[in-house]
Write a protein that binds this DNA or RNA. Structure first.
Lengths: 252, 252
DNA sequence: CAGTGGTCTAGACCACGAC
DNA sequence: TCGTGGTCTAGACCACTGT
């Protein structure tokens, strides 16, 4: 197997073979794959080549690698479904939180200064403000013990109640912030996208760089239409999805 | 630099240093990074270690590697924004297509048999049918010359008009299918998630395995509420996002 | 053609988890 | 302590791109 007449790289053909075994049930969900030295011997390839194949399957989401233990076939992902009523115009104070929060809720981890970074400029543009008028908060939301969501908030500094920029603060950030600031918030718009975890998010989430994240971002405004908050959440893709129901009596 | 007293691996520290240079503007958007041998010499590490660092930054989306040419700092992603009216209950025949389609539109690439695979079973469950009653279509949507969306459709075989399972068929699949079948389709529900490209999708998209994809899936039904179509689209995360507007007069 | 990134090997040592 | 995956090196050759 060490030679290759085709142009498909060895590690990819190995990955395909392993994927076929998983699809065929040779390795069932939850089962341990042969160790790297074993695969290396079986297919007569270098261990590094095995690792390339295995790394691809992990990025594809079909296996999970546990250091010091082994690599295992991933069972189908169980995602938390968060319902969004597409006709409601009001912020549902807690729909996201109810589904994603652990008992400890959201935790502020930092309040970095708003400089002129690309992120800051984009946020400023969304809010129709100058970067200098804004404050920024970073928070994490845990599911059980693990961080599953990282959020960034930008808002006019005048609307940031004292103490909310203190790292370690816990609670349901948006509703508590609105209450403390004495304002009402409603959705202006929300958008969904997907990106890979960058170095900073990967560290916060304890996951590999490039892990697929669902991005949900948007602007909330006060009832008179003034933009008051830009939020950008990155949610681990394998742990949640957002569902919009369009019929009065959902079938399932 | 070759020794490390900290537990942070060498390649990750290298990745951070490169990221810092990009953030600081030492390497500006579009600029070429030093070649792998050059970085290897500058930091006095093996070329494979350089490659690990560079691969991480590519997965993080901050650089782009072009074989035979060099590695370049990615300019900020330009995503197509697809507007979704959250109050409309009707399928907007073409909103997605208008934004994502090239002149050639969507192209059927396969009509694989519906076996008992995990995907098939999930689709059958969503439609409230047995897998044996269903047909399946696979299609791609190009943006320019490149595939940017892969879609899978499941529908009762009785609703599949003759000829629609012919690979190479081009057009606006869903509306043309509805017309040919003589039915009206409206949204039942839609969901957003994020996953990494698996081996098959990566090949169709011509992108690395694990590339973040935005998943938009859902069931459409006939006006009487009977589920008629389950669709699951995988859209390259860097090329599109879905926007929901909640106010009558969007600010931007 | 020269230079770039892509693949593959052989071998070494380390960090982690379970026993 | 052992077996697992994680990191790092040195060196070789290949495939692609632009000139």
């Amino acid at each position: 197997m060490a030679t290759h007449r085709t142009s498909t790289p060895l590690y990819r053909r190995l990955a395909r073979q392993l994927q076929e075994r998983i699809d065929a049930g040779t390795y069932t969900a939850g089962a341990r794959l042969p160790s790297e030295p074993e695969l290396s011997a079986e297919f007569d390839v270098n261990r590094l080549t095995v690792r390339q194949a295995v790394a691809e399957l992990e990025r594809a989401g079909t296996i999970e690698i546990r250091r010091g233990v082994g690599t295992f076939v991933r069972p189908p992902a169980v995602r938390v479904s968060i319902d969004v009523d597409p006709r409601s115009q009001r912020v549902d104070l807690g729909s996201v939180h109810a589904a994603l929060h652990s008992r400890d809720g959201e935790e502020v981890v930092a309040a970095p200064p708003v400089t002129g970074s690309a992120e800051d400029l984009e946020a400023a543009g969304r809010l129709g403000r100058a970067p200098g008028e804004l404050s920024r908060l970073e928070s994490v939301i845990r599911l059980g013990a693990e961080v599953r969501t990282v959020s960034s908030y930008w808002l006019p500094s005048a609307l940031l109640p004292p103490g909310f920029d203190r790292p370690g603060l816990r609670g349901n950030l948006v509703p508590e912030l609105a209450r403390a600031a004495g304002i009402e918030l409603e959705y202006d718009w929300r958008a969904f996208g997907a990106i890979g975890a960058d170095l900073a998010d990967a560290e916060l989430l304890g996951l590999p760089v490039g892990t697929p994240l669902l991005v949900r971002e948007g602007v909330s405004c006060t009832p008179d239409g003034a933009p008051a908050l830009y939020v950008r959440r990155r949610i681990v893709g394998s742990s949640a999805r957002f569902v919009l129901h369009y019929r009065e009596h959902p079938d399932r």
